[in-house]
């Protein structure tokens, strides 16, 4: 279970371009929940995931993951519990290391790294099995540098790497946004499979309303650092793209109305 309580984050505090990226945000996510996150640009979605992963420290609030208060844990320590896949396929892997070296790095997520061999023989077997499952032929290229792979192949590899050590939380930040439609579909299917197989607790940011509705068992919409819509279960299943868009424009309209009130 992930609990966020009263999370606050201001960027450029005190400056002219101060933004409240998280505004008194509270959220409880149950074990095995697969939450899709939507909202307009700058709504605070990435900031929310970053707050959970520990990319910065909160101005106020608390984050508890499965009973452990991680609010003061640095990012590298939280990595023992959390796996991430970023929008930029380049961010999730090391280009000058080989596929098996990258996988070996991920297979030790959250563990001590000593002076034993980086890639062990018995790892190789497991790595090629894991890669064979995604059907891209990467299992035959264990010794190839990752820099040689396409963006889609790198993102697929990153997905596999994210779950070599079962994470207590999986964070996906628009992880298919940079891919062509066909590859995007493949990676999305892979995501669905991996999350279902392992029953992972996950958050996935997307700008695609259909994906947000068809994937996962819960949906949240963010606006100006707050959660303005939170639907789950049956209610989510009944929701259509039109309903979501309506909500979206309602909020935006409100925001516009407020702005014009201010201007008037």
């Amino acid at each position: 279970m992930i609990e966020l309580q009263g999370c606050m984050k201001d960027f450029n505090q005190g400056g002219v371009n101060e933004v409240r990226a998280l505004d008194q945000l509270s959220l409880t996510i149950d074990d095995g929940d697969f939450v899709t996150v939507i909202g307009s640009n700058g709504a605070g979605k990435s900031t929310l995931l970053n707050a959970i992963a520990g990319g910065f420290s909160l101005d106020a609030g608390r984050i508890v993951i499965n009973g452990r208060d991680v609010t003061r844990w640095p990012e590298y320590r939280r990595a023992a519990l959390i796996a991430r896949v970023f929008q930029d396929p380049l961010l999730g892997t090391c280009p000058s290391a080989t596929i098996e070296q990258n996988m070996a790095l991920a297979a030790r997520r959250g563990q001590r790294r000593g002076l034993g061999p980086g890639v062990r023989i018995r790892d190789r077997q497991r790595f090629s099995e894991e890669l064979a499952r995604i059907g891209l032929g990467l299992e035959k290229r264990l010794q190839d540098r990752v820099g040689l792979l396409s963006g889609g192949q790198r993102q697929a590899l990153t997905m596999v790497m994210a779950t070599l050590v079962r994470p207590e939380v999986l964070l996906l930040d628009e992880h298919i946004a940079a891919l062509d439609p066909k590859t995007a579909r493949q990676i999305l299917e892979l995501t669905r499979e991996i999350i279902a197989d392992q029953g992972l607790t996950s958050l996935m940011i997307t700008h695609n309303m259909r994906h947000a509705l068809t994937l996962g068992n819960r949906l949240i919409m963010m606006h100006q650092g707050r959660i303005i819509l939170d639907v789950g279960g049956e209610e989510k299943r009944r929701l259509g793209v039109e309903d979501l868009l309506e909500q979206f424009y309602l909020i935006q309209g409100e925001a516009l109305a407020n702005d014009s009130m201010l201007l008037a």
């Binding site: 640095p74 990012e75 023992a80 997520r109």
Partner: peptide, 8 residues
């Protein structure tokens, strides 16, 4: 990448 793999 290596930070999110748990390395300080």
């Amino acid at each position: 990448m290596i930070t999110s793999q748990g390395v300080n």
